[in-house]
């Protein structure tokens, strides 16, 4: 792997971690669990478009593990990993189809992250009441995803990585 690429990946991961931290400091968005802006997805979408799918997977997983260790708990790491995995698969496929812009990719990422977390929570807690939650997550995930997608698209357009 080229040193340049590795450095950009490290920077993107750092950015994702900072965005996660900033988001955790905004109390309004944690009032309802699962409903969040997903600021860190800006970095993941950026990595997906500028570096590639595998690199985005690395950035996202390293970010989840480190952020959970720093600010979260072991339980929150499992929820986030499930969400991140589902979200990465969905975003990768949509981007590969080439039929959509960063906006839909980001919306799908946000929604799938939420769904993955909820599914994992249902498994761990052995309950299915969380299904009532799905509409809220679809709504909030879509709105937040559009915003994040627009920001990501600007970043992908403006920031050039020297080969």
């Amino acid at each position: 792997m080229k040193t340049g690429k590795l450095t950009v990946m490290a920077l993107t991961t750092a950015l994702a971690m900072i965005l996660s931290f900033i988001e955790s400091q905004i109390p309004a968005f944690v009032a309802v669990p699962g409903v969040k802006v997903g600021l860190a997805n800006i970095a993941v979408v950026f990595a997906l478009y500028k570096l590639g799918w595998k690199e985005a997977v690395a950035v996202s997983l390293v970010r989840v593990v480190l952020v959970s260790m720093l600010f979260g708990s072991l339980a929150s790491m499992f929820y986030s990993l499930a969400g991140a995995a589902l979200s990465l698969i969905g975003m990768g496929l949509l981007k590969k189809s080439g039929k959509f812009t960063e906006i839909v990719v980001s919306v799908a990422g946000g929604i799938l992250h939420n769904i993955g977390q909820i599914a994992m929570a249902c498994l761990i807690l052995e309950t299915d009441v969380l299904r009532y939650y799905l509409p809220f997550l679809l709504l909030s995930g879509t709105v937040a995803g559009v915003v994040i997608g627009v920001i990501s698209a600007i970043m992908v357009k403006r920031i050039h990585i020297a080969e």
């Binding site: 929150s76 929820y79 929570a121 807690l125 309950t127 009441v129 009532y132």
Partner: peptide, 12 residues
Amino acid sequence: GEFIACLPNRLI
């Protein structure tokens, strides 16, 4: 069907 979940304590 309304619920409150406390994921850290695994309580619903």
